[in-house]
Computed example of a mutant assay.
Amino acid sequence: MKKIGVYTSGGDAPGMNACLRAVARAALSHGMEVVGIRRGYQGMIEGDFVELKAHSVSNIIQRGGTILKSSRSQEFRTPEGRQKAYNRLREAGVEGLVAIGGDGTFAGARTFYEEHKIPVVGCPGTIDNDLYGTDFTIGYDTALNTAMDAIDKIRDTADSHNRLFFIEVMGRDAGFIALNTGIASGAEAVCIPEKETFVDDIIQRLEQGWMRQKTSSIIVVAEGDDGGGAFEIAKKVEEKIKRYDTRVVILGHIQRGGSPTCMDRVLASRLGAAAVETLQEGLSNVMVGLVNGEIKHTSFFKACKYHQTINHNLLNLVEVLST
């Protein structure tokens, strides 16, 4: 394999640039040419390619976002769109691909491989940490620390004004960010998609805290929680308990931005280099991940079909530590 392409797709995650850098430099060290594909699958369809040299990826390891940009392409969902993308790649002489993204990215890559047999290897880049086949995804640790820092600041004002804050963090289908930031920031309760939310349980916990002269509290809510999100849960709680001055904060896309942490930079660098080696070994249609400190390969089918599971012992820990 003499020429490969690399692209980022779906939601951006801190550490994507570090992964791009690793892919480019690992490939160049093996005598390959590297093409950066701008705007993910849409850029692939339009032939929006740029040659990547060692200097092209200098000074980006510390930057959030992705220098290649990202997008979601409806056209790539069609056979005609995928045929266009394949034609553009063949015209450019691209023989293999490294896809950096989440389950949507890998679902597209899997279909693309099945139809056109162009080798594709994936690097898990998503802040949700919900992909099967890796202990951690690129961007997750940075998102955790960003959310934790914001919650720490909110607790200062909560304590100053005796307020109850409901803080919504990202996690449409997975509660990893909510659960771990909730523990790290001393939240009184955590609401996640994997566990049904009972408003009466939250009220009971708040009442117990009040009896211990606890006059301010933090509730962390994942955006995909079945209770309807932070605003809806806060409304239900406020209807039944009047003694708190209640506020709602949506952290939103702040969790996607910022300079990646050391952990994310190292993880992204290892996975990016491993993806190039995987292509060289002749493997395809797989995601590279880190399991117990070792590089592992997982088929796109398994990576997309299965999901990381929540450690319910951590949910119990939230309750124990909030008493």
Results as ranks from 00 to 15, higher is better:
K3L: 04
K3F: 02
G5R: 00
Y7W: 09
Y7K: 07
S9H: 00
G11Q: 02
P14T: 11
G15N: 02
N17C: 04
A18M: 05
A22M: 11
A24P: 02
A27M: 00
L28I: 15
M32H: 14
V34Q: 11
V34A: 08
R38S: 11
G40K: 03
Y41W: 15
G43T: 06
G43N: 07
M44Q: 01
L52Q: 05
L52Y: 04
H55T: 14
V57W: 07
I61T: 12
Q62K: 14
I67W: 02
S70H: 01
E75L: 13
F76A: 12
Q83N: 12
K84F: 06
R88M: 15
L89M: 15
A92D: 03
A92E: 14
E95L: 09
G96L: 02
L97Y: 06
L97V: 08
A99W: 08
G104P: 07
T105K: 01
T105W: 01
F106N: 00
A107I: 11
T111E: 13
T111I: 14
E115V: 01
I118K: 05
V121D: 04
P124H: 03
N129E: 09
L131P: 09
G133S: 06
F136P: 07
A143T: 10
L144H: 03
T146N: 14
I151A: 08
I151R: 07
D159F: 01
H161F: 10
N162C: 13
I167Q: 07
I167A: 03
V169M: 05
F176A: 13
I177W: 04
I177A: 00
A178E: 05
I183V: 13
I192C: 03
D201C: 11
I202D: 10
I203T: 04
L206D: 08
E207W: 00
Q208D: 13
Q213Y: 14
K214L: 13
V220S: 12
G228Q: 10
E232A: 15
A234D: 06
K235F: 12
E239A: 15
K240L: 13
D245A: 13
T246I: 15
V248F: 10
G258M: 06
R265A: 04
R265G: 04
V266I: 15
V266R: 10
S269K: 06
S269P: 08
L271N: 09
A274H: 01
G282N: 01
L283G: 00
S284Y: 02
S284N: 09
V288H: 01
V291N: 07
N292Q: 13
T298K: 00
F301S: 09
C304K: 05
Q308F: 05
N311G: 03
L314Q: 11
L315I: 12
